[in-house]
Every structure is written in structure tokens, then in C-alpha cells.
Design a protein around this nucleic acid. Structure first.
Length: 418
RNA sequence: GUGAGUGUAGCUCAGUUUGGCAGAGCUCUGGAUUGUGGCUCCAGCGGUCGAGGGUUCGAAUCCCUUCACUCACCCCA
């Protein structure tokens, strides 16, 4: 028996219905905020990701699904969407005549991690990228939009976490400062943190060890070590959010794992999720477009993790089931033949109906009608066929009456007789 | 890659401690009710006890190996 590969899964009905509904809601808000859909490929040159995300990041170092094709070209399944969006923005010169451009995309992403709650090897994101504006107004606008999305989805029990990671200049200054601090503490830190203090010092703030956290309490924080311009930008974002009534929690430990982020970084987290508690995340990446060989154009973007978001919503979101209006009960071979014609005519007329292809007894067919929660059933047996009659029965009340088959199609009696 | 937990009917799970006929509920099929569903009652179908090996008169149960799933670490949506 075949099984889906580790970490990938089928979205079955009725869950698929929840997904569709959530996607539609999000798309609507994105369109209202002026984002246009872009459809991006699922694989790209591996180098696109190594260059944009960063060779040292976990995503690139150990989580990419990479392969060579028959022409010995090196490709990877996309681990995230921003790199592709930037590539498309540059490839099609979407920065002319104006660099201002807002795009959104959705679809599967791939990372070869060990699966756990809220983490899959194929997972789905809806992402949005806004190019060409470095104003803090845009940062705040994006966060207002995310709040609106949560509101439209009736999502509660989440919070916005906010930080600024500065620009490359303030970050390298800060990095040095932090490393100096960690160096002095190194003997008190756990093994992981000792390693992190060398490779990716900002990551130490993620450490779950209470002991390390104690030692880090006095560590310098990136948001306190911003250059004038970055600090001013951050202050304005915070002020604008306050003015819009957007609650947020400053999280100096919020350090995003992709190299390209600058200044504003944020995550939407929920207490209802497992260890992987962020269902959306993003931030500014003012240097990436230029790094990728384009003009110097600032940008900000985010991605919503659909798997996590849907898992938060699916308990409270009850969608109507896909049940038939009419179930055809057909007794005997001739009736089944006639009934089949009737089934197709009704469907053509837009009436949702089902029949039993096995043609069991009356009782078993009635049971099926009941199980499928049909509102009506139509009963066609030999007795009815002789007179070209058919019995229409409303399931809930048990009321029924005999009609002419022809009348059924002509007057469409459903919902009219009772 | 590391650690822990769990694998028994289509589904949810007892049974494993202390080895002794493979179980329950739900679902499904049929009947009570010959061509009228839901409720009730009765009967039936359904098993490589994850797989392989070992110990034993005898293994779902004990031991070893292995696979899968789940959660957590690392890291991220």
C-alpha cells in the first residue's frame, strides 16, 4: 500500500472546504489593499535561494529539496516565496515605470525538516510582498491588513510580536557587541548557545534554557542598538500602530531566520498552537532587491502559514455539508434505467441529486437517503412506472405525495409543496 | 540529525504490569418491519495484534532488531 511521503499530507473533505473558505477570505482582503496575484513556479535555480535566504541559514544549509535535471542544472523546490517574487519582479522589470508594486501568491513550500505539530515538509503559504516604499506607513499598513484578516476570520487569541533588526550597518555593529557580551558569559551558556554565539549570535535569544535566559537578561538587544535612521523608522511604525489601535508586544528576542530581513520584523503567534506557534511572519527586506542584482528598491512582505492558520480555525468554523437536495430511490431494473435519466435531467437543471447504483431494497435506499441528509427523496418503483408517476417525500416531515414524472421536471416542486 | 512516546477491526481504543481461546464502542451488512429512513432490539461481516527474529509447552503481552506515526529539540510558516 502506498502512503504519502513523510511530512506531506492530503487535505480531505470537509477540511478542504475550510481551506477554500480561508483562502478566499484572505485573498479578498489582499485585493482590497491593492495586492495583485502573481503565480510563481514551485521550483527555481538553487542559487536563487542560497543567494537570497543566505548560505548559513538552516533553510538553505539542510532543508532544501534540491535536484539536478537532465541538463545538469541545479534546482530546488521553493522553501519560501519571497525569493521567487523578487526574481519575477526583476526578471519582468516590474519596477518600471514605477517601483511601487504589491504582489501576493499562494501555494506549497517545501522544507525537509522533521515533521511535528504545525510543521510539514510540504506546507502552504499565502504571501504578500510590497516593493518600492520604505515609509513606515507601509509597515503599519501591512500590520493593519493582517489584523483585518484575523478579524474577518474571527480569529481570537493571537498577538502581534514586533521587533526591529536594523540595517546591515547597525546589525554588524550590534553583532560585534553581542558577541563580546556572549564571550564574557561563554562558560555559563549551554552547548547550543556556545555554538550559536559563534555562528548566529542573535539566535541565542531563542534558547529555551532558563539558565541561559538568566545570563542573557543583561545582554544588549538589537532594538536598543539601532542607528538613528533605523531607530526613527521603528519609532514611527510603533506610533502609527498605536494610532490605528493595533496592539503589539515588543519582542526583543524576535530574530527571523532568513538573512535578508532588515528593520521591521514581526510574527503573529497563537497560544493555541504547539511549539510552532507562529502562523504568520514577515518583515522588511530593504537590501534584497539590490543584492539580487536589481536597482536599490526597498520592500516588505510576509507569509501566512495556512496549515497552522486552518488548524486554529477548523474547530469553530462549521461549514454546510455538501448534501444532496434529492435522493432517488429506484426499485427494479426498469425504474433504475428511468431514474438514471431523471437523475441526469435534474442535475442538468441544477438540482443536486444522488441515486443508489447498487439498487438495494427500499429500506436500504431510504437509509442511504437519510445518511446523505437529503432533503427529499423520490421513489420510483414498478407501481409508479406503470402510471408514469413518482413519489416525492420530504424526509424530515415524512410527508409524501404522488406526482407525474413530467410535472417534476416542469414545475420543479422542491421547496414548493411543503 | 538528536530525544521521548505510541503502533491491536474501516474509526476511537481496552487487553501488555503478573504470558493461557483476539475484545468493546462507533461504522458497515442483514433481520424484527416483503415497497418507506431516523429510535430501539437481534444477528452478522470485519484482524499479518506495524514487520522480522528470539525466549517459552504456549507470546498482542517478555527480549533483540527494524519500520511507521506522534510530540519535542535544532529551526521555521
Amino acid at each position: 500500500m502506498f502512503k504519502a511521503p513523510k511530512g506531506v499530507r492530503d487535505i480531505l473533505p470537509p477540511q478542504s472546504k475550510t481551506w477554500r473558505s480561508v483562502e478566499n477570505t484572505i485573498q479578498q482582503v489582499l485585493e482590497d489593499f491593492g495586492f495583485d496575484e502573481i503565480r510563481l513556479p514551485v521550483f527555481e535555480s538553487s542559487e536563487l535561494f542560497t543567494r537570497s535566504i543566505g548560505t548559513e541559514t538552516d533553510i538553505v544549509a539542510k532543508e532544501m529539496y534540491s535536484f539536478t535535471d537532465r541538463g545538469d542544472r541545479n534546482y530546488s523546490l521553493r522553501p519560501e516565496g519571497t525569493a521567487s517574487a523578487v526574481r519575477a519582479y526583476l526578471e519582468h522589470q516590474l519596477y518600471t515605470p514605477s517601483p511601487y508594486r504589491k504582489l501576493y501568491y499562494s501555494g506549497p513550500m517545501f522544507r525537509s525538516e522533521r515533521p511535528q505539530a504545525g510543521r510539514y515538509r510540504q506546507f502552504f503559504q499565502i504571501g504578500a510582498e510590497a516593493f518600492g516604499v520604505d515609509s513606515p506607513y507601509l509597515d503599519a499598513e501591512i500590520l493593519v491588513m493582517l489584523k483585518l484578516i484575523c478579524q474577518r476570520l474571527n480569529l481570537t487569541e493571537w498577538e502581534l510580536q514586533l521587533n526591529s533588526v536594523g540595517c546591515p550597518v547597525c546589525r554588524s555593529n550590534y553583532r560585534q557587541k553581542l558577541q563580546d557580551y556572549l564571550q564574557a558569559q561563554v562558560s555559563f551558556l549551554c552547548e547550543d548557545c556556545q555554538r550559536r554565539s559563534q555562528t548566529n549570535p542573535m539566535r541565542v535569544f531563542d534558547c529555551k534554557s532558563a539558565h541561559c535566559q538568566e545570563r542573557l537578561a543583561a545582554a544588549p538587544r538589537v532594538a536598543d542598538n539601532l542607528g538613528d535612521e533605523c531607530r526613527e523608522h521603528f519609532e514611527q511604525v510603533k506610533n502609527l500602530l498605536a494610532a490605528q489601535g493595533i496592539e503589539y508586544k515588543l519582542n526583543p528576542n524576535l530574530v527571523r531566520g532568513l538573512d535578508y530581513y532588515t528593520r521591521t520584523a514581526f510574527e503573529l503567534v497563537s497560544t493555541k498552537l504547539g511549539a510552532q506557534n507562529a502562523f504568520a511572519g514577515g518583515g522588511r527586506y530593504d537590501g534584497l532587491v539590490e543584492e539580487m542584482g536589481g536597482p536599490s528598491i526597498p520592500a516588505i512582505g510576509f507569509a501566512i502559514g495556512m496549515d497552522r492558520l486552518v488548524s486554529l480555525l477548523e474547530e469553530r468554523l462549521t461549514l454546510p455539508e455538501n448534501r444532496p437536495l434529492v435522493y432517488l430511490i429506484l426499485l427494479g431494473e426498469q425504474a433504475q434505467c428511468e431514474g438514471y435519466n431523471l437523475l441526469l435531467k435534474l442535475r442538468t437543471a441544477g438540482i443536486k441529486c444522488e441515486m443508489d447504483y447498487q439498487s438495494g431494497g427500499m429500506k436500504s435506499q431510504m437509509k442511504k437517503a437519510d445518511k446523505m441528509q437529503a432533503e427529499y427523496c423520490l421513489i420510483l418503483g414498478e407501481t409508479e412506472l406503470k402510471e408514469q408517476n413518482i413519489i416525492l417525500r420530504q424526509m424530515q416531515s415524512g410527508q409524501q405525495q404522488t406526482l407525474k414524472i413530467d410535472d417534476l421536471l416542469r414545475v420543479s416542486p422542491f421547496g414548493k409543496y411543503w
